[in-house]
Nucleic acid binder design. Sequence first.
DNA 1: ATGGTCGGCAACCGA
Length: 271
Amino acid sequence: MRFTLTTWNINSVRLRIDLVAKFLKSARPDVLCLQETKCTDDAFPLKRFKRLGYEHVAINGQKGYHGVAIVSKLPFEASDVRTFCGKVDSRHISVSFGEKAGLHAPLVLHNFYVPAGGDIPDPALNPKFEHKLSFLDEMKACEPLHPKGADRHVLVGDLNVAPYENDVWSHRQLLNVVSHTPVECEKLLAVKDSGGWIDIARQRIPQTEKVYTWWSYRAADWTVGNRGRRLDHIWVSPALENAVSDFRITRDARSWERPSDHVPVTAALEV
DNA sequence: ATGGTCGGCAACCGA
């Protein structure tokens, strides 16, 4: 069975619901993981998703900030929410798929929105950067993010870190810019390695090739110089390493009308 | 070298 999923930081699901609909009508992933929905659960545009054929929805929203959701054509067995760093921020939601979705074995999907970390890359001066580093440390220590041998787990989201040299437009110029500083890159890779996760973008695209999923709003023309970063990730557990049959970044979405600064990232898994 | 733009929500905060 082919299982397709997309992760997309939508930067307000209510404002951009028409863009989401446009994407879903064309790409038709089984599952869409959203970050920065920026609304409470009762304000989430449920009906619109249901009309689009995404009847199964798990939401962890909050007013004005953050917020994550998983919308799906396939039914879940269960969903769960975790908190990090002793805050109530809505930055995680997970669901499990199984028999109801037609799967012969369970598949667990985690959707994360890691703190951006503010501007100053010094945890002593910037509490937001300190929060980001602590969040990554807690992810590393989080037992459910350590899949065992045959576990079929997927972790996606806006992880707000571009860990490798060619995940940013200029490694040299971004070394001291939050999202690509050595300390946070090391911590993100420690999360990945502690769970044995496989970063499927880099499984499928050579490390020598530039790959981006985000382009800043702070440029008159985002295409000039192609100054992007790879902040959005899809990781799979070792049991799914050979199950990945497709990976794509919908770069066009950055030029849609009133776009998010992030674009959809999609994978297909043979499960 | 610096500042540049968004969205939420109604003055700035977070990104």
